[in-house]
Design a protein around this nucleic acid. Structure first.
Lengths: 190, 190
DNA sequence: ACCTGAACACCGTTCAAGT
DNA sequence: ACCTGAACACCGTTCAAGT
């Protein structure tokens, strides 16, 4: 039967979850789908575009949140982190897709964070910057967290003491640094 | 004549500057040095370790700064950004080496940022986190900035308006968000 | 100690040709 | 429209064997 984009992205996500990003190759994916590598290039222009589609699949559960600007920022960042932690190497994959401009969902996230920053009182020109800073933090923190998880899932409990205690609290602390910074740069605080 | 680690790292850096990270392969590097690929594996355990050495070569100009905690954070981050902007794809390369734990200089940077945060009044447990947040920001921002520079050096002046004006000021704004956040989380402000 | 030769097990991408 | 076959131009890594 015919190969659809959705099937390709689903198989790619399964490959990611089971073997990690290093084994997510076009050839391996084609083998899994029982097609020739060239077949994938009928549906996707290149690997980067396919990975972008996988990124957006992973980020499907990320939606906006209601409430004040603080709650909206903290909420969407929490959803983002949760989605990333649900798939092997997802933080790395989404970081790459975001940098390459291949993730529509990340663009949405950026827009929402920017709106929240604007509501906090940051000028329009700086609101996008504030939003980007938050995204850099979430992706950096989560990629770090995830690589450590995989490291000591592989049996190495070296100096894990500091990192293993309350990763969510640690995540919140760094995020609050930015939120407080945004609040400091504004007049109307909610 | 004999191949030394320094020669290998120098050649790798030249390759990076001239052709970018995508063309920095073990085989290409060996060809440039007029040796067999296997020769490189006498000097370096693997590619990751070699890239870590290149990262630390790029970061050589990054040293500490004197002054209050704010000046020390802003200073070292500025040096970091300057070093990264001096070599093609350096932000991407250093990010990867940092994530892989292969850059000693980045560990030093982390230590110095942590000390500055502690001096700002952040608790010892949170100081390292604050330091990491700053590093995530600098690497994220600069990787973004650098990829855009290369994009529109290649002739695409699409919506460059917002990004091209005062990248240094934009960098400072986001960094200040974090610095202000750190100040908000402390008692003694310098 | 340091390097070569040669192999192993892969990659992403293209494109004429088939159905 | 959708896919195969086959090629092109590569990868990182290992390791016996040479000097």
């Amino acid at each position: 039967m015919q190969l659809h984009k959705r099937d390709v992205v689903d198989a790619a996500t399964a490959l990611l979850d089971d073997y990690g990003i290093a084994d997510l190759s076009m050839r391996r994916l084609a083998r899994e789908l029982a097609v020739t590598p060239g077949a994938l290039y009928w549906h996707f222009a290149n690997k980067q575009q396919l990975l972008g589609a996988v990124a957006d699949r992973i980020l499907e559960p990320v939606h906006g949140e209601r409430g004040g600007w603080r709650a909206r920022i903290v909420g969407i960042c929490g959803q983002l982190r949760d989605a990333l932690l649900s798939h092997t190497d997802a933080a790395e994959l989404v970081s790459a897709s975001f940098a390459a401009g291949q993730s529509e969902v990340m663009d949405d996230v950026l827009t929402q964070l920017g709106a929240a920053a604007a509501e906090a009182g940051v000028t329009a020109a700086n609101a996008e910057l504030a939003a980007r800073s938050v995204v850099y933090y979430v992706l950096g923190f989560t990629a770090d967290e995830q690589s450590r998880m995989q490291w000591d899932a592989a049996g190495a409990d070296v100096a894990a003491t500091v990192w293993n205690q309350n990763p969510s609290a640690r995540f919140a602390f760094g995020l609050n640094l930015l939120v407080d910074g945004i609040a400091a740069h504004s007049r109307a605080d909610a």
